[in-house]
Amino acid sequence: MSEFTIDAHEHDQIRILNLKGYLDAHTAPQLETSFQKELESGHYKLVINFRDLNYISSAGLGVFMQFIEEVRKHEGDIKLANMSKRVYNVFDLLGFPVLFEIFEDEKEALLSFQNKS
């Protein structure tokens, strides 16, 4: 029922994860695995593109919380981009905008990494 896919690629040493479909309690472990893989291969600069994500539940939000601490410990960050209004509302309600950088689109997110370094 709930379809969810992750497509990852790299741009200037920044990993970009495209999320697609429904991110809920059932599909959250998939995202977890992806994050684990990125961290294991030493990628700490991550941009998550939400353009194709239709739905996110609180379990989906939890995944970002799970990894943000370790990513930031390694001078990295998880930046969120291209959220639909509906997805943004879920993040917003819980107060994510004060915890994560959320960008209108992917380019801005990538740019913000480069400005920092």
Binding site: E32, S58, A59, L61, G62, V63, M65, Q66, E69, L93, L94
Partner: peptide
């Protein structure tokens, strides 16, 4: 609580 959990 675990890092991926929270309470609203």
């Amino acid at each position: 609580i675990e890092r991926n959990s929270f309470v609203s």
